Simulated assay, not measured.
Amino acid sequence: MADVARLAGVSPQTVSRVANNRTNVEEATRERVLAAMRALGYQPNIAARALATGRFGTIGVISFTLNRYGNVRTLDGITTAARAEGFSISLVGVTALTHQEVNDAFTRLTTQAVDGVVIIESEVLDMRSLRLPPGVPVVISDGHGGEEFPAVDSDQAGGARLATEHLLDLGHPTVWHVAGPPDSNSARHRHASWRQTLERAGRPVPQVLFGDWTAESGYLIGGYLAALPEVSAVFAANDQMALGVIRALHEAGRAVPGDVSVVGFDDMPESAYFWPGLTTIRQDFDQGGRICVDILLEQIRMRRPAEKGMRVVPVELVVRGSSASWRGA
Rank of each mutant, 00 (worst) to 15 (best):
residue 30 R to W: 04
residue 12 P to S: 06
residue 47 A to D: 08
residue 272 A to E: 11
residue 69 Y to W: 08
residue 151 A to S: 13
residue 198 L to G: 08
residue 47 A to I: 12
residue 181 P to K: 06
residue 168 L to S: 09
residue 207 Q to H: 14
residue 196 Q to T: 10
residue 243 L to P: 01
residue 268 M to D: 10
residue 295 I to L: 14
residue 318 V to T: 12
residue 104 D to N: 12
residue 259 D to N: 13
residue 320 R to G: 09
residue 195 R to K: 14
residue 322 S to P: 01
residue 19 A to F: 02
residue 185 N to L: 12
residue 23 T to S: 15
residue 223 G to F: 11
residue 276 P to C: 12
residue 300 I to Y: 00
residue 87 F to G: 02
residue 308 K to Y: 05
residue 317 L to A: 09
residue 161 R to L: 01
residue 70 G to Q: 06
residue 253 G to C: 08
residue 324 A to G: 15
residue 2 A to E: 06
residue 112 Q to M: 15
residue 184 S to K: 05
residue 69 Y to D: 08
residue 82 A to F: 01
residue 159 G to L: 10
residue 141 S to R: 09
residue 11 S to K: 08
residue 322 S to L: 00
residue 11 S to A: 13
residue 321 G to W: 05
residue 323 S to G: 12
residue 300 I to N: 00
residue 235 F to M: 06
residue 70 G to N: 14
residue 231 V to D: 04
residue 139 V to A: 09
residue 53 T to V: 02
residue 301 R to T: 13
residue 34 L to K: 14
residue 202 G to M: 03
residue 5 A to M: 10
residue 139 V to P: 01
residue 231 V to E: 04
residue 301 R to G: 13
residue 24 N to F: 04
residue 160 A to E: 11
residue 245 V to P: 04
residue 178 V to L: 15
residue 143 G to I: 03
residue 329 A to K: 09
residue 315 V to M: 00
residue 266 D to H: 07
residue 101 E to K: 09
residue 40 L to W: 05
residue 48 A to K: 08
residue 250 H to S: 10
residue 202 G to I: 05
residue 8 A to S: 12
residue 149 F to Q: 02
residue 213 W to L: 10
residue 198 L to A: 02
residue 224 Y to M: 14
residue 59 I to K: 07
residue 228 L to F: 00
residue 70 G to P: 00
residue 286 D to I: 11
residue 222 G to S: 06
residue 251 E to H: 08
residue 318 V to F: 04
residue 91 L to P: 02
residue 254 R to Y: 00
